[in-house]
Design a protein around this nucleic acid. Structure first.
Lengths: 333, 333
DNA sequence: TTGTATGCGTTATCAA
DNA sequence: TTGATAACGCATACAA
C-alpha cells in the first residue's frame, strides 16, 4: 500500500508537501499548481489510501477509546441483530462516543480463522454473539489475547451474559400443563446452538416429569419460511395435531400462524402456539402471539458493560450474568 | 490516557519491558517476577488502554484497508438496520476483511456535531443511512473531508443510491385505479424524510390525475404500534372507510392489519391494504400483505461499492444510482 | 517548500 | 539473567 512517502519520492517533493496537497491545503500553503497536479496524479496512480491508524495516532484530540468488535456469523438472523444493536445504541457511553463498535464478520465454524482475536491488533475486546458449538469448543481451548464476552452461551473460561434456557423450557412445559394441554409438541431450528438445545431439553424434561405427551419434535429453518414449512408438513402428515406447539423462535411461530391460517386451523381453538424471543411483530400477528420474552436489548447492554469493565481492568475474572425470561401471554395460547 | 511510557517511568523500567510484560512475554524475555508484578499493578492503577491505532500502525501485516462508517440516527427503525447490514454482510469484500465497518451513531438533526466527517480521522468514507431534511441541508452546505454516499436521499453534491419515490407513489395509485379502487387514503410516518415525502407526493398526484378520491392522510409513528393506532383512530372516527389504504411502511401496515382484525374489518373484502418495503414478515401476515418491494439489501451493497470506488479514487464524481421498486401482489389488496 | 519532531506500541539489537 | 536502546510504521503540525 502506497504511503505519503512513496508519493513524495516519485513526485520529488517532501512528504509534508504531499500531505498538504492531499488535504486540500495546497493553495493555502502556496504549493505550485503544477506540483499539486503532479502529486494528485501520482496519488491516484498508486491508489493511495490514507492510513486511519496513523491519522488517529497523530491527532491526540480524539481520545483513545476502547474499540469493541461484534463478531457475528454471516448467517445470523436479522431480528437478533437489530435488537442487539438497539440495546447497544441506547447506551449513553456509545452516544457520547466513549467506545467504538466494529462489525467483524466470520463464517460459522471458522472462528479459528479470525486472527485478530489472537493478535489484539484490531480491537480491545469482542462480543461473540452467536457461537456455534464448534466455535465454542475452539475458543474454550484457545488463549485469546483480547477479552471476550459470550452472548447467550455458557463457558468455563469467559464472561457470559445468558439466560437459563433449561428453565425457560421447563417454564413453558409447566405453563401448558396448567392450561391443561397435555398433548404437546416442539419445533426446533435446525442449527447447532447451545441456547436452542437447552430450551429443548428443558421443555422435554418438563413434559416428561409432568406426565404430558410429547407428540413431535420437528426441525426447520430458523425463519418464517422454516416455521411455515414445518407446520405445513405437520398438518399434512398427521391426523391428530398436538393441542399445543412450542416454537423455539418467533419468526418460525409467525410462519406457522400463516400456515394454520392457510389450512383453516384455528388458533387457539384447534391448536395453541407459543413462540420464543418476543420480537416486536408478535404483538401484531393474528392472533397475537404468546411468547417467551428474551431481554435481548438488556443483555446486549450487559455485554458491553461487562466487556468495558474487563478492558478497563476494573472487572477481574470472568463473570456470569444471568437474566430472567418470562412468558408473555397473548391470544395464541 | 496512560501510555506504555507512563507506566515505564513509574516502574522505572524501559517502555520495551512494559510492552513485553503486558503482552505476556515477560517470562519468555526473562523479566524478573517482581518487575512484572510491579508493571501489571501500575498498568491497572493508571487504567492503561492499549492504543489500537498504534498497534495497527506498527504491525504492517494487517493491510491498510478502508474503514467505512455507517452513520445512522439513534431512532433508526430496526427493520432497516438488519436488512441494510445483511446487504453489506453478503459482499465478498467484507467477508474477506477487505474493508471495515464502523458503527457511528448520531442524534437526528445533529449531524453537524459529528466532527469526524470534517477531520477524516476516524474513517475513510461514510454511508449516511437516514438523513433527516435538516441534516441533509447541513451536509449540502458543508465541505466534508471524507467521501459520503447517501442512502435513499437526493443530493446535488454527493453520491446517492436511491429509488424514484415519486414514481413509486404514482405506481401505487395506478395499481389501485386499475383494481377499481377509487376511494383511497394514505397513512404516513410522522417524520421528516425525503423518501417518505416523495412517495406521498407521488401517490397524491396520481390519485388526483386519475380522478380518484383521497379520503384521508393520516399520520402515525413509524412502527407497528403507530399503524395500529392510526388504523384504530380511522375506524373510530369514520363511518365510511376508504376502499383502500396505502401505508408508507410495512410495520405500520402490519399494525393496521392487527387493528382491523380486532375490529372485525375484513381484509381485503372490507378494506384493501398495501404496504411499503417488503420486509420479511409481510409474506406471513394474515392475510399476506401486498407491498412495494424496496431493494434494501441491493442498495446497501451499492452504497458500499460506490463509496469504495470513491475512496480508491476510481470513481471521480458524485454519481446517482437509481433502483426500481415493484409492487408485490399478495392477498391484502 | 522542506526538515524534524511527535503520537504510541512493537521488536530487533545491544549491554551489563 | 535482566533489561535498555533505538528504529519503525504513517500522517501532520511547526519551525525553518
Amino acid at each position: 500500500m502506497a504511503t505519503i512517502r512513496d508519493i513524495a519520492k516519485r513526485a520529488e517533493v517532501s512528504p509534508g508537501t504531499v500531505s498538504f496537497v492531499l488535504n486540500g491545503k495546497g493553495d493555502h500553503m502556496r504549493i505550485a499548481a503544477k506540483t499539486q497536479e503532479k502529486i494528485l496524479k501520482i496519488a491516484k496512480e498508486l491508489g493511495y489510501l490514507p492510513s486511519i491508524s496513523a491519522r488517529r495516532l497523530r491527532n491526540s484530540e480524539s481520545k483513545n477509546v476502547p474499540v469493541i468488535a461484534i463478531l457475528w456469523t454471516l448467517d445470523t438472523r436479522a431480528s437478533l441483530i437489530s435488537r442487539f444493536l438497539k440495546g447497544i445504541q441506547n447506551k449513553s457511553l456509545f452516544k457520547e462516543n466513549l467506545f467504538e463498535i466494529l462489525i467483524q464478520p466470520y463464517e460459522n465454524g471458522k472462528l479459528s480463522e479470525v486472527e485478530s482475536l489472537h493478535t489484539g491488533n484490531k480491537y480491545n475486546g469482542a462480543i461473540i454473539a452467536n457461537a456455534s458449538d464448534e466455535d465454542l469448543r475452539y475458543i474454550e481451548d484457545s488463549n485469546l489475547k483480547v477479552p471476550i464476552v459470550l452472548y447467550q452461551r455458557k463457558s468455563d473460561k469467559y464472561s457470559t451474559v445468558n439466560v437459563d434456557g433449561k428453565k425457560t423450557g421447563l417454564d413453558v412445559a409447566e405453563f401448558l400443563y396448567e392450561k391443561n394441554q397435555k398433548n404437546v409438541g416442539i419445533v426446533v431450528p435446525n442449527l447447532s446452538s447451545q441456547a436452542v438445545s437447552l430450551r429443548q431439553d428443558g421443555f422435554l424434561e418438563g413434559v416428561n416429569t409432568l406426565g404430558m405427551n410429547n407428540l413431535c419434535v420437528k426441525y426447520g429453518d430458523f425463519s418464517e419460511k422454516g416455521g411455515y414449512d414445518a407446520m405445513e408438513s405437520l398438518i399434512k402428515q398427521t391426523n391428530s395435531l398436538p393441542e399445543a406447539l412450542f416454537f423455539l423462535s418467533d419468526p418460525m411461530a409467525v410462519g406457522a400462524l400463516s400456515a394454520c391460517h392457510e389450512y383453516g386451523i384455528r388458533i387457539p381453538e384447534d391448536l395453541k402456539i407459543i413462540g420464543h424471543d418476543n420480537d416486536e411483530q408478535t404483538s401484531y400477528t393474528a392472533p397475537s402471539l404468546t411468547t417467551v420474552h428474551l431481554p435481548v436489548e438488556v443483555m446486549a447492554g450487559a455485554c458491553v458493560n461487562q466487556l468495558i469493565g474487563q478492558i478497563n481492568q476494573t472487572i477481574e475474572t470472568a463473570t456470569k450474568e444471568q437474566y430472567e425470561t418470562n412468558i408473555i401471554v397473548r391470544k395464541s395460547c
